[in-house]
């Protein structure tokens, strides 16, 4: 059912928005996954590192517990192709860090404050994603 999927999308989106709101109003920080991940990879045991650590621990365990308790049987449906996984991982990590943000930081937090960089970044990665999906799926047929 697609309508159910939209409803789940909207509800999940609201939760993401509440999480980002809490992170801003309580911690004074922009909730961006790539930034938090980068914090986790630098200055071990600093305040930023511990903050990122607590964030990531909950980010991993809460979906795990919810998936078990609610019997969601969640699937990522990710490809088995190792080359694709490795190349995509490098692109996502390198690109989001170079751009200082991804879908959560630039997308959710940037657009909601009308930040020019967030809006531009989101438009660019959406366009790049749509063009490359077209090439990967309809021209080469690898995804």
């Amino acid at each position: 059912m697609t309508e159910t999927s939209y409803l789940y999308g909207l509800s999940g989106g609201l939760l993401i928005g509440f999480a980002a709101s809490m992170y801003l109003l309580c911690n004074g920080r922009i909730m961006g996954a790539s930034g938090i991940l980068a914090d986790l990879l630098s200055n071990i045991k600093s305040e930023n590192w511990y903050r990122a650590l607590f964030f990531v621990i909950a980010l991993v365990t809460v979906p795990w517990i919810a998936n078990q308790l609610l019997n969601l049987n969640a699937q990522t449906n990710i490809t088995d192709n190792m080359m694709i996984i490795i190349i995509a991982g490098l692109l996502v990590g390198f690109g989001s860090h170079l751009a200082n943000g991804c879908t959560s930081g630039h997308g959710v937090c940037g657009i909601s404050r009308f930040a020019p960089r967030g809006i531009i970044a989101t438009l660019i990665y959406l366009a790049a994603g749509m063009v490359s999906l077209y090439i990967f799926r309809h021209m080469i047929g690898i995804v």
Partner: peptide
């Protein structure tokens, strides 16, 4: 910002996952 976002978009399309 521009190049990073392009590369991120390409990788995002290739795998269907982003950092979060």
């Amino acid at each position: 910002l521009v190049f990073g976002s392009i590369l991120f978009g390409v990788g995002w399309a290739l795998i269907g996952l982003c950092p979060g």
